[in-house]
Write a protein that binds this DNA or RNA. Sequence first.
DNA 1: TAGATTGTTAATCGATTAACAATC
DNA 2: TAGATTGTTAATCGATTAACAATC
Lengths: 217, 217
Amino acid sequence: MVDFIPQPVVKRLPMYYRYLKKLESEGRMFVSSAALAEMAGLTASQVRQDMNILGGEGCQGRGYPVGDTCRHIAELMGITRRKTMMIVGMGNLGSALVHYSSFDEKSFETVAVFDSDPCKIGTKVGSQIVRSADGIESFLKAQKADIAVLTLPAASAQAMAEKLYGLGVRGFWNFAPVDLHLPGEAAVVNVHLDESLQLLSYRMAHPDMWGAAEKEE
Amino acid sequence: MVDFIPQPVVKRLPMYYRYLKKLESEGRMFVSSAALAEMAGLTASQVRQDMNILGGEGCQGRGYPVGDTCRHIAELMGITRRKTMMIVGMGNLGSALVHYSSFDEKSFETVAVFDSDPCKIGTKVGSQIVRSADGIESFLKAQKADIAVLTLPAASAQAMAEKLYGLGVRGFWNFAPVDLHLPGEAAVVNVHLDESLQLLSYRMAHPDMWGAAEKEE
DNA sequence: TAGATTGTTAATCGATTAACAATC
DNA sequence: TAGATTGTTAATCGATTAACAATC
């Protein structure tokens, strides 16, 4: 177990977690690095390296205990602690995310949604009533939000992020097509759907240039 | 210019494209590797290496011509050729994607949407009328679709993908929380929103462990 | 015990960074 | 010309793979 986890390993954690959960639901007690590698499209060697970095709990001759490893990774990712989310921007994507329920284990709970369009304010989206973006400051002074989901136009994303950072928000899940610049304290993950589709376009244009092995990532 | 572009470079293409478009709209004629690196959070050296791999058209003393480079990357990504999309699964996310308009330059056009829920079939979502999933085969025999957007439950994603592959679809934009296994001909890009949120959770739990430089990616 | 599989070191591979001559 | 900036080679860094002794 190392106290620093390299980014490539960090990015594989959610995938490991997904496969381990699946194995757990199937009642498997142990899984070998070879079996896990096969599922995940990696090499057994890489799985063992990763598990070691994470603090390997493997049993020689049997493999890794599914439940323990799963919980260990969940702990590392911090999804055992519940987090509150506020969604800023009730466009199509924002509305869809209110309803989106695949978020594992109630780790993430939407507590408020905002928009600046007067036509939307006061309407109901799922279980939420859309609040005025003008009320964000007073809302955050009364109640903390761990994560801000930014589903608003590119032009307003940076300014909104800075405002929210100033009010104590430290997690930013950004769907606007810009890269946010925030102080080191903030954690940011960008979901650039348009760029994702462009990547697909590239792969369709060059079907030869990326091996089957890479399909998994 | 090399005929093989490494994956790390490929994944940076959409970002380069985004910044070059921005510069173009601002009327800039040339941009230096240093300036582009600054915007994108990379090193100037890396930008020059990338541009060289792409077939560098830089002018010594002035930098890279914005318009030409932009078009060149668009060409490489294949977004100059229009592509048709069908969306399978009219849940919250599927519906949001019908309306989603950030898809650049009309490169991607949604031509049909499907669902298997009888309550949804026949209803209108944006400009589209929801078709029965049973009609997919006859639809694809009458009309080609380049890309299938999979916004359906994990359990049915793999089977649906195989069926669509069999009917000639070669691009898969997968939002279901599974990794698709398809023949080498197929191009797949996964958007695992739940894993993206787990990554954010990790970063929030370990704010120290990833430098400001990495914020950009 | 014999077989399986880990933990860990060493070797390889590939990507990023540094440096600088070429040249606009 | 002088200044700026590329193109490109070499050096560095880090991640993946291979190998195998340790051990359950």
